[in-house]
Amino acid sequence: MQTFWERVILLLQSPSVVELASMLEVKRSTLSSWIHTDRRPPMKVLMKISKLTGLNLNQLEYGFDYKDNEEEEVAENLPQQKKQLSAMIEDLNEEELIILKSFLPYLRKQSLRNRTRKERS
């Protein structure tokens, strides 16, 4: 099984500690110490690694195939939520449908804004 740092180096395709330190904006000696002792960096650096690799912290820690139970539960409940929404929409009158139709783009825009903010953090 790969170590945390082996996964990071593989994912970021970083051939040297100097290059990886530059990518993570830390001193080479500090990064080298973390790698040789298999220590985790501060949260700010972990979040940068997560952003650069596209993996969540659990996947970085436990491997690429790690699945978060909460994510699976949400995915399992999605069809049921869609059915419930569909039933609610069926009961709306024409005026309520017009309001809902105008509200959905707003929700989508807010969702995109929130995702963008999270990605920048």
Rank of each mutant, 00 (worst) to 15 (best):
L46E: 14
P15N: 13
S32H: 12
A21P: 04
H36Y: 05
K51I: 07
P41T: 05
K118W: 07
E76Q: 10
L100I: 07
K82G: 00
Q2F: 01
A75K: 12
F4D: 04
L107G: 04
T37K: 15
P79V: 02
D65Y: 15
T3V: 03
A75M: 09
L100E: 10
L97D: 05
K101W: 04
S16C: 04
M1T: 10
I89D: 01
R117F: 13
R108E: 14
V45P: 00
L85F: 12
R28W: 00
D91R: 11
S33T: 13
S22F: 09
L85C: 09
N114S: 10
E70H: 08
K67L: 13
R40L: 15
E61I: 12
E94S: 14
R40W: 12
K101R: 10
E73T: 08
P41H: 05
K48A: 10
L12Y: 02
L20K: 09
N56D: 15
L100C: 11
T116L: 14
I35M: 15
N58L: 12
L107I: 13
P79D: 01
R115T: 06
R28M: 00
L112R: 11
W34K: 10
S33G: 13
F64C: 03
K83R: 10
V26R: 02
V17R: 15
E94F: 08
D91T: 09
T116D: 07
K83D: 08
V8K: 00
F4T: 02
S102C: 02
E119H: 05
G54C: 12
R7N: 10
R115W: 01
V8G: 05
E72G: 00
